[in-house]
Design a protein around this nucleic acid. Structure first.
Lengths: 212, 212
DNA sequence: GTCTATACCATGATAGAC
DNA sequence: GTCTATCATGGTATAGAC
């Protein structure tokens, strides 16, 4: 986001080129994104205020705007980091496993993140954030990468007979995405009738096996 | 909402007791709720403004506040009307049908409403509306009525072997509710690869039969 | 009960000193 | 790059005339 992060890509094989200040800046931007993540998950984009973010990080609001030029840009950065984490997880999957098991692992991982107060993956809502994200090339690129990886897994699973042949890939993909940010999780947790692990099992089960 | 609507419950078997003005008032409140419904579905509670509602109805914003004391109350009224429509639909289901078919019919109906620009049933989001709704006794009562009817259907379907025995009723209930406001619908429609009827079929199928 | 006009406030964004 | 202080916008809600 800030200009100092550019030189880092030029030379990183040598001794640490990043000055103390540069490192601190990166750490601080990480902290800002952490706070943004948490608040986005808790309140959503519209209800999250820049004052809250600044307060949670412990800096002044004006300083926030030195790092990120707008609320949209800040949220986009958070969403991009989330996407990159997801990509890393998917790329690190055990390719020995059946494709369907890998897909379940992705969903289980995403649900686990949300249980810990993290962000849902999908920019589902009718928020002004959606528009901003669709105009963000980095975000779109990462999303496309993820979609492609997931589509490969889905098609492999379909080839294995683990997914209905009649279901188009996009239907399966969005259904999994949607389940990862399904409000059912919150309601089941509030009811307090089941453990977190049970809730995740139910969600994965009803997604992949359905109600019957 | 307004005080004039009370006498109507006293006597309705006789000739029309409602004066022209009273009828007009009811019609206008209906129009207000229509507009609210549409805007809530399109933009969500936070992004919907009272100016927009007033503009869509064609009255001044101040007049709106004569009918509904706050934005929350207005949205609650819209949600309550939606719930009552849903209750009417459920109560009018063909009880000769298998319970599972009745459940599918409810989901299909809800998805159809959304396709036509209507509201999703679930107050899922982290919006300030949620809190207001939870403090609204009428809303809670209606919601409870609906949950009870749905739970009966679910348990009957489970008895028929159409729903997994291992799945608790609340899991099934929320899963169906969630599917009724699933963002997957919007994404599949935007992609333009499928007809509206196909999209509904996919959503119902992946809900009840799962991905496999 | 409808209108116009306005109070009031939350919040996104910026200025300018250090 | 951080702070304090401030601006500008837009949105809920209300006052007061008709």
């Amino acid at each position: 986001m800030s200009k100092e992060s550019k030189p880092e890509s030029k030379a990183e094989s040598k001794e640490p080129k990043l000055s103390f200040k540069q490192q601190q800046l990166i750490v601080r931007e990480g902290a800002i994104i952490d706070a943004t993540n948490s608040l986005l998950a808790k309140k959503g984009f519209d209800l999250m205020t820049m004052d809250e973010v600044a307060a949670e990080v412990g800096i002044a609001k004006a300083s926030l705007y030195k790092h990120f030029p707008s609320k949209e840009a800040l949220a986009a950065a958070a969403m991009i980091r989330l996407l990159e984490n997801t990509l890393a997880f998917v790329r690190g999957l055990d390719t020995q496993q059946a494709a369907i098991e890998q897909l379940k692992a992705v969903l289980a991982w995403a649900l686990g993140i949300r249980m810990k107060g993290g962000l849902p993956t999908l920019p589902s809502e009718n928020t002004s954030l959606r528009e901003a994200l669709l105009n963000n090339k980095v975000y779109i690129n990462r999303l496309w990468d993820l979609n492609e990886l997931m589509a490969e897994l889905i098609e492999k699973a379909r080839g294995d007979g683990a997914i209905q042949k009649e279901l188009p890939t996009d239907v399966v993909l969005f259904t999994i995405y949607a389940r990862s940010c399904d409000p059912t999780m919150d309601y089941l947790r509030i009811s307090g009738q089941h453990t977190d692990a049970q809730v995740i099992d139910f969600l994965i089960g009803t997604c992949f096996r359905g109600l019957q």
